[in-house]
């Protein structure tokens, strides 16, 4: 069983503080981190490998050379190998061009060992579109299952995997033939505290770095900026609503005014949730 997890390096939006008044964001102290959802994706691969007692976990990332950091992080969590595709040709990609480049890298990885399962994060916290995963699945012509919240069992005789897929108001029980691709959210598992041997392995690990030339039969016009149908038109601050009335006076007066205003909404209160 060969599992490939796609991992992206993103700025830590917990640290990026947005000043709501100036509309500017303070990137000074924002380090780059492994997209949190992708960390759960790697963790799930580790769980599956444990479940089967065997298998290989590779992680794949597209990004600048520094992105090797998220590959090392993935090794800490328990991945076996890590590939980074890094090249000017990939720069400025939107989700369509990203899924194309990643699928080409996956073809190459499959040469080393056929891929049975691809796992992506539900979305990346910077772009957060959630479109790359399904895109990769289409390009590889394998079924995508998004929003997986539990991997129930994996049947190696039948080549099927039993999954819980989250819906707006409930979930689906899905049986998929693998190879297939799934995207996972944070609910699917708890990130474990990495054991020392993994830490040592990660500290030592040298990710495999590929440029566009290392990938085969690539149609360059489909890469990077050129290969991206969407472009950012204008940026603007949304028209400011004039805002409502302020309740004046000391806190007691404010509160009683508010209760007065809420009188006609009584029927909404004390309702069951």
């Amino acid at each position: 069983m060969h599992i490939v997890v796609c991992v992206k390096q993103v700025p830590d939006t917990k640290i990026i503080k947005i000043n709501p008044k100036t509309n500017t964001l303070d990137r000074r102290s924002a380090p780059a981190i492994l997209n949190p959802y992708d960390a759960h994706a790697v963790q799930e691969a580790v769980k599956i490998k444990k479940m089967l007692g065997k298998g290989t976990i590779s992680v794949l990332s597209m990004g600048p050379p520094q992105a090797t950091a998220v590959i090392k992080k993935s090794i800490e969590i328990g991945a076996d190998e890590g590939y980074l595709i890094s090249d000017r040709a990939f720069a400025g990609a939107d989700t369509l061009a990203t899924s194309y480049a990643l699928s080409k890298a996956l073809e190459r990885i499959a040469k080393e060992e056929p891929v049975d399962l691809v796992i992506c994060g539900l979305h990346a916290i910077d772009g957060d579109t959630g479109q790359v995963g399904p895109g990769i699945a289409r390009r590889m012509d394998i079924p995508p299952v998004t929003n997986v919240i539990e991997v129930i069992e994996l049947n190696e005789k039948e080549n099927t995997i039993l999954l819980k897929r989250k819906l707006a108001n409930g979930y689906q029980l899905i049986q998929a033939d693998y190879p297939c691709l799934m995207t996972v959210g944070k609910e699917i598992n708890e990130i474990e505290y990495s054991p020392m041997p993994n830490m040592i392995k990660a500290a030592r690990y040298e990710p495999i770095i590929w440029s566009v030339n290392d990938l085969e039969n690539v149609n360059r016009p489909q890469l990077g900026l050129k290969g991206s149908p969407t472009i950012v038109g204008k940026m603007f601050t949304p028209p400011k609503p004039e805002g409502g009335k302020r309740l004046e006076g000391n806190s007691d007066e404010q509160v009683s005014q508010l209760m007065e205003l809420l009188k006609d909404k009584k029927e909404l209160f004390f309702a069951a949730r």
């Binding site: 939006t13 509309n23 149908p229 969407t230 940026m235």
Partner: peptide, 12 residues
């Protein structure tokens, strides 16, 4: 848009 209190208009 990512970060910032700004909207981005995306065109195709």
């Amino acid at each position: 848009a990512f970060g910032g209190n700004i909207m981005a208009t995306i065109l195709c």
